[in-house]
Structures are given as C-alpha cells and as structure tokens.
Design a protein around this nucleic acid. Structure first.
Lengths: 141, 141
DNA sequence: GGTAACTGTATCAAACATAGTTACAAATAT
DNA sequence: ATATTTGTAACTATGTTTGATACAGTTACC
C-alpha cells in the first residue's frame, strides 16, 4: 500500500461533504464510504482544513463541512493540499559529482520535475469539485 | 527510498550512452556515475531494451549503446519504458459499493487518472534525449 | 456541572514498494 | 580455455503509506 492514494481519498471525502451541503459530516460516516479507518479520514481532513477547503467543528454534533462552494474548489487545490510526492523522484543518493554527466544532470532533472508538476497542476485546475460531482451523478445514473 | 526514481535514473543512463556514441558502455561504468549498483542499472537497461531504446551485447567487451539517435528518443518514450506507477493511486481497498458516492467515484477517478497520465506524456513528449544533453552541457558550462 | 459525542493527534504495527546486494548461468571476444 | 560482461533470480535493507489504538481537548445538551 505504498502508492499514494491520498488525492483519490480526498476527492471522495470532499464529494461526500458536498452532498451534505451545510450539515456537519462525521469522520466515521465518511470512513464507511471510503472503506477505511476514521483516523485516515481525519488526517486528510486535517490537510484540507489547513488548505482552507473545509472547516471542522469538534465536540458533540461536530463534524466537517465544505468551506467554499464545490465550483470554487479546483482539483489542483485538492492535489496541492494533500500531495507531498512528485510525479517522479530524483535519485536519493544523488549522482557522482566526479562525472561530467553526474554534475549536470541533477539540476536538469529537477527543473524538468518542476515543469511536469506545473503541467499536472494546470490540467487538474481545469476541473473543480463540482465537475466531479456531476460526473459521479452521470456514472451512477 | 520508496519514491520511484527510475525515470531519473533512466534519463541519466541514456545521457551516458549518448555521450559514448557507437561504443558499448558497461553497466559498471554507468553505475559509478549514477552512484548505485550495476544490477540496478542493468534492470533499467533491460526495460529500455524491451522498449527498443537501447541494444545490449553480452560477453567480453560487451555493453550497451543507444538504438536510435538521441533526437529520436522522447522523454515520453523513456517514461513509458520504465514507469509502472501513476501520478496518483486509487484507494487499494476500493470504495463501499453500498454508498451512492462510493459506487460512482471509482470510475471517475480512474478516468481522471488516465487523463492526467496522458497530459504528463504529452508534456514529456515535448523533450527528447537530445534536449536533455544540451541542457546538461549548458548547466555544466 | 456532568455526560455523551466528536475531532485532533501521537504512537505503534502491518503491508508494501523500491533500492541495493550477492550469486550465478549464459554469452562472447581474444 | 579464459576472462569479461550481461541477464536475472533471490534475498536483505530501508522507507512510505495505511490502518489501528488510545487519549486529550472541545462542545452540545440535559
């Protein structure tokens, strides 16, 4: 389970919240739909909260709801909120600096990595949570 | 070390091969520049060979060389050759099918995943190994 | 005020992926 | 024949992600 599925789970979580409208939704309820542990959901909600996408309330009858309308939550914002990983990684050890290729390749790959990441962000920015909700409805119908 | 750095290593490896021209390059030599074990390099070369990007020769004075000129090797082809992972993963367990959102979300995320992957491929396709070699030279100068 | 119901987070265990290592069979130039 | 090199299997080491337990802090309601 080393593959990062946080973005997928975050989209799922936010879709649940969107359907609840103004009501507070409990982490246990979301966890049942995502098929995981409530703590996993709360960890994701914590990140989404830090990004200003949701707002939570502790205590009895507490829970979480969207902080903005679904149309104003882009998939790029969700991706940025939960993603720490990149599309591809640089070699952990770093190249051999005694080699001309080793010396030059690292910064080239690093720039390329940033550019790809930017491209992914732009593509995701074309969609919003509202788009996803529509698609889920269609898929279901 | 769970982050997938095979693409980075593959680009590095191919850059080394490009600089050697028609000569066979040994995995030990490449490994020294990438700062890893020769077997790791041979595993990558094996995938690049399957993709038709390089050709290897066993036995004494054997090694590997490019199968095409650097300008004809796009970064997309390299990415496809070594990448098994995706930009983001779906939740391994799958959603709860008793929930309307759970039922619909999976295919939506799957389609989105494919679209992002396609977008990454197109972006990478804008560059070739020749581009990378130029950038390495500039970075080095 | 007390109680029940939540979130937030720390901590640990389980599962898994990637990288690194060792070992050896198969191939090939000399 | 011998030395050299790839190809690959098998194993270990390391790190990441998920899942689970536990509990402190907060809040609505009686």
């Amino acid at each position: 389970m080393a593959a990062n599925s946080q973005f997928s789970m975050a989209v799922h979580v936010l879709t649940m919240l969107a359907r609840a409208g103004e009501d507070n939704v409990k982490s246990d309820y979301i966890a049942a739909s995502v098929n995981t542990n409530p703590v996993v959901i709360r960890r994701i909600l914590s990140q989404l909260n830090a990004a200003g996408l949701v707002s939570s309330q502790t205590g009895a009858f507490g829970g979480t709801r969207l902080a903005k309308p679904p149309a104003e939550i882009s998939l790029c914002a969700i991706y940025r909120a939960v993603s720490c990983g990149e599309v591809f990684a640089l070699h952990a050890k770093g190249p051999n600096m005694d080699c001309p290729v080793g010396r030059g390749i690292e910064s080239v790959l690093c720039n390329l990595q940033k550019e790809i990441e930017k491209s992914v962000g732009e593509k995701l920015g074309q969609y919003s949570l509202a788009t996803v909700i529509d698609m889920v409805s269609v898929a279901h119908a």
